[in-house]
Computed example of a mutant assay.
Amino acid sequence: MALVSPPLVAPGMHEARRAGEKLADMGAAKVLVFGSVASGDAVVGSDIDLVAIFDDLGDYSNFAVWCTRDQLMVVAIFDDLGDYSNRNELRVALTVGAQQVTGVAIDLWVTDHPEWTHRSTAVTSSFEAAVAESAVVLVDRPPRCSIDWEKEIGMPADDRGEALQRLRDTHNSLGRSLNGLYESAQERMEAAGEDTRRWAMARYERVAFVCTDSQKAIECAYKTVACLLGLKPERIHSLSALAKNFPEEYLDVAQPALDPRNRVTPSAMTLWHTAGPYSNQRPALDLAQIEETAVELAGIAAATATALAAHFEGVPDASVLVSDIFHTVNQINTGLAAGDVGP
């Protein structure tokens, strides 16, 4: 992504429209703005949340992108392959173009009419369904090519598929939490050089990311349940708020993080969602305290994932993923018992 200098004022609809016009020039059929700019709540430093909807992304399955300091060009080869294999490359090109004309950071999702129409109407737990309720249309032009409305879309086509994707996200975060339980190469190097200050800094950073990744695993688990229930997705990170609509059947997933005996409260856990890479957003903890927090959060994440995976046992297309989750949980528990983090 192109680097953008922070603007001195909050972005508004004027910048959003300029971005939308640029995306339309680059091939988008419809452009939506949502989030803080659409609601009028943007502040200095806010990005512009956009959705670029193409007629049919199959027409963009082969393209070349040239980025220079002063211009960006996208050359599309129309071949109607009907797949989404180059979605991310197209997203990068479009984002650079929109940022160049606005000078504002852009958070962009790229889709096409078949995928957007299906997911915003039939997948109630999807990102698209949530955005469609409040998005403001910036550009909407007639189709310029044939649209294959019957093709297989690139994202999950139902709430169950959405839940399986969230379950994978849960496992990915759990795996990162596991990796952080053991001494890093940088810590070993600083210890060998007897540089205790740099060793402590490296250790603190590693353990901070255990907290962040554990929180993300818990949050992803909660959002997996929401998908199973077909609940409207909420763009929030509060664990208590996410669990408030859980029926009794899924309270076992919520219980580990909401247990009043925990030293770390649910609101304190939520703070770790973005605190990993941003030191100014982390709780003011010394090394011993953050190690204790990491141990507790990793244990809670493991217990949460175990409860969630149990709801997928016996589901044929989830069997490998469930087995992987149980395996990672066992590794985390082993690491907590004999690893490098904690007292």
Results as ranks from 00 to 15, higher is better:
D340Y: 06
M1N: 10
V44E: 03
G97A: 11
P11Y: 07
N262F: 04
A302D: 01
A243S: 14
A301I: 05
L81H: 12
R69P: 07
G299Q: 00
G40S: 10
A122I: 11
H171S: 04
G35K: 01
Q289I: 04
D340H: 15
F54C: 03
D80A: 14
T196A: 13
K223N: 07
H118A: 01
T68N: 08
M189C: 11
A28N: 00
L308K: 04
L297H: 02
T68G: 15
A93C: 04
D49F: 00
I300M: 07
V37T: 05
V322T: 11
S267E: 14
L251G: 07
A275L: 03
S214L: 10
G27T: 02
P277E: 10
A122D: 10
C211F: 00
S46C: 04
T293L: 00
L271S: 09
K22C: 11
E152C: 02
G40V: 09
A243F: 06
D252R: 14
G180N: 11
D213E: 13
P156Y: 06
R206Q: 14
D286R: 01
A122L: 12
W149C: 09
L287P: 07
V65P: 00
E234K: 15
R168D: 05
P11D: 07
G339I: 15
A243Q: 06
E128M: 07
R91P: 01
D59H: 13
H171F: 02
A64F: 10
E248L: 13
N245L: 14
S125G: 08
G103W: 03
H327N: 15
F63K: 03
E152S: 11
V225S: 04
K223H: 08
W66D: 05
Q186E: 13
Q331S: 15
P143S: 12
S173P: 01
D80M: 08
F78I: 07
T102Q: 04
I325Q: 05
W109A: 12
R141M: 04
L57N: 05
S134V: 15
I48Y: 04
A294R: 02
L308R: 03
V43Q: 09
P256G: 00
T293C: 11
D56R: 05
L72Q: 12
L336D: 12
L297F: 06
G161Q: 06
L228I: 07
V137F: 05
N262W: 02
D169P: 01
A268Q: 13
V131C: 08
A202F: 15
F326T: 09
L72H: 10
E21Y: 02
R206H: 08
A200H: 06
E248F: 09
S214Q: 09
I300N: 06
E115F: 03
T306K: 11
R141C: 06
D158A: 07
F54V: 00
G58W: 03
A254G: 00
A288Q: 14
M155K: 12
F312A: 11
Q71C: 13
L23E: 00
G175N: 10
A200G: 09
P266V: 04
S240R: 08
